[in-house]
């Protein structure tokens, strides 16, 4: 059963066709890579998937339900979480609060519960704290729980973004260049963690990445975008040995 099904997706920016006829299916627990040269439209695909841009045509389905036209927050609550290419944390909040913001929809209590400090408030806040710490432990960030997000080193900030995305309880996780700016050791560690996340949470992951080692190491399937069109798709070995893919990356 597929988690995400994209058919015929396309978008125009003014006269420019930024993405054209993009199709993709992701099954439960699958790890899929989306690669392509800079400006190929990868992040634009992410933005359409999460409702930041409205696609000009095509349909988006999550777990068999069409979700075109839903707003970003509705899509997030339906089960698609994402990270950003340029880190977007809530910088002046604590690490813990960053995670708890993302649990907004899962642990619900009303304004009345909050301002009168009714038992429900204490119960859910406690559950949230416990859950948040549990998630932070995946990347061993729990010791930083009460420090400001902006005080974390760069690599940890990227990881915190992933934790925050996981906290929305997603069915599908979109990672936009998770290894950007990391050194080879950090990348290796990240690879393992991404795999672990997939196995533990049983979620599907779609990731944009330029680091071919990472893509080769963990993705089961890849799709290559070039000038907004799909150049090749399929399992890693076949795609990466495809001639047109090589020429798109390295030039003729």
């Amino acid at each position: 059963m597929n988690v995400l099904k994209i058919s015929n997706l396309g978008i125009n920016f003014g006269g420019l066709r930024a993405v054209d006829n993009f199709n993709l299916e992701i099954n439960e627990g699958e790890l899929v890579g989306l690669i392509g040269p800079n400006g190929a439209g990868k992040t634009t695909v992410f933005n359409m998937l999460t409702g930041v841009y409205a696609p000009t045509d095509g349909t988006l389905q999550l777990g068999g339900v069409k979700y075109n036209g839903k707003t970003t927050y509705q899509i997030a609550n339906m089960g698609i979480a994402r990270t950003f290419q340029n880190i977007r944390l809530f910088k002046n909040c604590t690490v813990l609060d960053n995670v708890k913001v993302a649990m907004h929809d899962t642990y619900r209590y009303s304004v009345i519960d909050a301002v009168f400090r009714l038992p429900k408030y204490y119960r859910l806040e406690k559950q949230m704290n416990e859950k948040a710490i549990e998630l932070l432990k995946i990347f061993s960030l729990e010791d930083y729980a009460e420090s400001k997000a902006s005080s974390l080193p760069y690599g940890k900030q990227r990881e915190l973004e992933i934790v925050r995305a996981l906290a929305t309880n997603p069915k599908l996780l979109l990672l936009d260049e998770p290894a950007a700016g990391m050194n080879p050791n950090e990348t290796k560690e990240l690879m393992n963690t991404i795999k672990k996340v997939r196995d533990e949470f049983k979620i599907a992951i779609l990731l944009i990445e330029h680091d071919m080692k990472l893509v080769k190491g963990i993705c089961e399937k890849i799709t290559v975008l070039n000038y907004g069109c799909v150049l090749a798709e399929g399992d890693v070995e076949t795609v990466l040995s495809n001639k047109s893919v090589i020429s798109a990356y390295l030039g003729d």
Binding site: R88, C93, H104, D105, A114, R117
Partner: peptide, 26 residues
């Protein structure tokens, strides 16, 4: 009391980064 609750966190997250806040389901 409002600020130290899920509602307050949502409000603060908007001032920090609207796009990330929306993507986190707010």
């Amino acid at each position: 009391l409002l600020i130290k609750s899920r509602h307050g966190r949502a409000i603060i997250s908007i001032s920090e980064d609207e796009i990330a806040s929306e993507a986190s389901g707010i």
